[in-house]
Design a protein around this nucleic acid. Structure first.
Lengths: 338, 338
DNA sequence: TTGTAAGCGTTATCAA
DNA sequence: TTGATAACGCTTACAA
């Protein structure tokens, strides 16, 4: 496979590379006829611009890299679509990369993107990521980068976050107000800031209502439906049945709900459920799952905007944190019938 | 933001760029001590290799581009993960791009990837894509590219496909054998080859059993849950109620099923449902949805393998089509209770 | 083992 | 309006 270059075109047309280059970049003055001929010949010859070379000399790519930990759930895809919306409009292209919740892959992805000369990065960390040195160095070196959703308090950089604490508290209070007293929290992956924040909301809601929480009421796991199923089976086996469950995401809630239903428990009569990060699944499951709705598209949009600002500002910008709010969607799974 | 280059390092160390370059590429002989010093200084200075420049001279990037039409449903993410598995192992990095079912975006994505000098492309076309000239040119120019799932018969290139015809036929026959006679087909987006194949399977199953199909039994729409809902509402309004529905994907089936259920129809007693491309949603909906299971990971793996073969082979390869098979997962939504 | 210099495909500067 | 030519940051003969 042979690359056709502007040199080849220039040779064929008996002109110079600069003339050919001009034909492709509307800027410099060039004879309309010359331009036409060049463009036509280029097409005939099957010329395709080599962006690497162009980027190399212009020192920017108009590409933005996005790194997410997974995209099998619709959460991250929606965020990405939000980001694409504002990025496309400004002429940027988006390169997406997923780490499969693996730190090594994540790092490789970031480096691959960096080396591809993306002009900036939007990143949500994998559940495995514990060492943030690389990212902090990157930020400190002046590379434009925005962290969203999955991040660490310790990182000094711009972030777009959801107010996990507040909405976890609201969700828990909703259950308490319905009269539930033996509420369990499925917190997912323990180490993430967002998990800790949701857990804190869960705890403080109890504190506020002067209800004590036993350690066994908070259960750690992964973030998938299967994890919820495993927990539910264990609870049934040990015959420790909560009267309500607040899960750190819908997948966990749904997995557990299915197991309990299959074992004869009624929802919400025997056990109430509330999830987090409202997903499409939550609306089709029976009964429909209450959940905290996160503004996924908006998260993507805000992150993209922050990033573009940062790219424009160059070195004179200071880290900013955008904190977004959601909605509590109460559905049948958590409503005491009177 | 200033890039540190090997030149900077060379200057600081009073050595040549080639020595520095050697230190980073284990190949050429270089004094162990020199190498050590270079690497250390590089780290101190915050050097980061510019892959664009490297790629430019080496004329390859070890990056593979993937283009999908959407990834809010889990189908494409799963395919991508399959592809990543085999690509990572061979040292390739993956850049994902989504077209949002839009031809213009798709084309931009492809060009962006091409220009980023990806070594090859895995692509599934948007529902809007009608003109395939660009892709055919690309293929003809010798660029390694594999089409999967969403493609056109007309494109002369390597493909990884699912046997849509056969499994659509099986799914329909399953309904016929259960005794259903007034079966509707939600075919999704009409123009795609896969839609046409599934439709053909639906028709031929009827033909085989000598049942006539009226034109109004085949309904065109988009591919989302909302589309299924709209169709169902229309059918109810017109009081033309099928006794069974074979939908081109699970989303359509679920959308319609929910509307029918909310309007008092029993599934499968009043209407039976069977979907396609088994999704997680299908297993949590009530009653669980019968569906044709596609080997998503395997599709990705096969596509990646084909691509790597093609990259290795250079010009002496001929287009290959891999046709994969699935499974019919019969669940409650299509089982006549006796 | 190291250094020099050419070249990858562009754009950009300066003359012509 | 065009053409030479020097970059961009890197690798790689070839020479020392």
């Amino acid at each position: 496979m042979k690359y056709i270059t502007i040199k080849d075109i220039a040779k064929k047309l008996n002109t110079s590379v600069s003339t050919v280059s001009r034909a492709f970049n509307d800027k410099s003055d060039i004879n309309a006829k010359t331009k036409e001929v060049v463009l036509k010949t280029a097409k005939e010859m099957g010329y395709r611009q080599n962006r690497m070379a162009k980027n190399l000399v212009q020192r920017r790519s108009f590409n933005i890299g996005i790194v997410v930990p997974e995209f099998v759930n619709s959460f991250f895809p929606e965020v990405i679509m939000g980001a694409q919306d504002v990025l496309f409009e400004k002429g940027y292209q988006v390169l997406i990369t997923q780490s499969n919740e693996c730190y090594t892959t994540e790092l490789k992805n970031v480096q691959s993107l960096e080396n591809s000369m993306v002009d900036g990065l939007l990143i949500s960390l994998s559940s495995e990521t514990a060492n943030i040195d690389y990212y902090q160095d990157l930020v400190n070196s002046g590379f434009p980068i925005i962290f969203f959703n999955r991040t660490y308090k310790e990182i000094k950089a711009s972030k777009v976050l959801f107010n996990d604490y507040k909405w976890a508290m609201f969700a828990t209070e909703h259950l308490i107000r319905q009269g539930y007293r033996n509420i369990y929290h499925f917190q997912g992956i323990k180490t993430l800031t967002l998990s800790r924040e949701r857990r804190r909301g869960f705890m403080d809601a109890h504190k506020k209502h002067k209800i004590t929480v036993e350690p066994h009421q908070v259960i750690t796991s992964g973030f998938f439906m299967e994890d919820g199923e495993i927990i539910a089976k264990k609870l049934i086996k040990n015959n420790t049945i909560p009267d309500a469950i607040f899960a750190a995401n819908d997948q966990l809630a749904i997995g557990a709900m299915n197991v309990f239903k299959n074992n004869g428990y009624k929802v919400p009569e025997d056990i109430a459920f509330i999830g987090f990060s409202e997903s499409k699944m939550g609306s089709i499951v029976e009964p429909p799952l209450s959940s905290v709705k996160q503004p996924t598209f908006e998260i993507g949009k805000q992150a993209a905007k922050l990033l573009l600002d940062q790219i424009e500002a160059g070195n004179n910008h200071s880290p900013q944190t955008v904190m977004l709010d959601g909605e509590l969607h109460i559905r049948e799974s958590s409503q005491k019938k009177i």
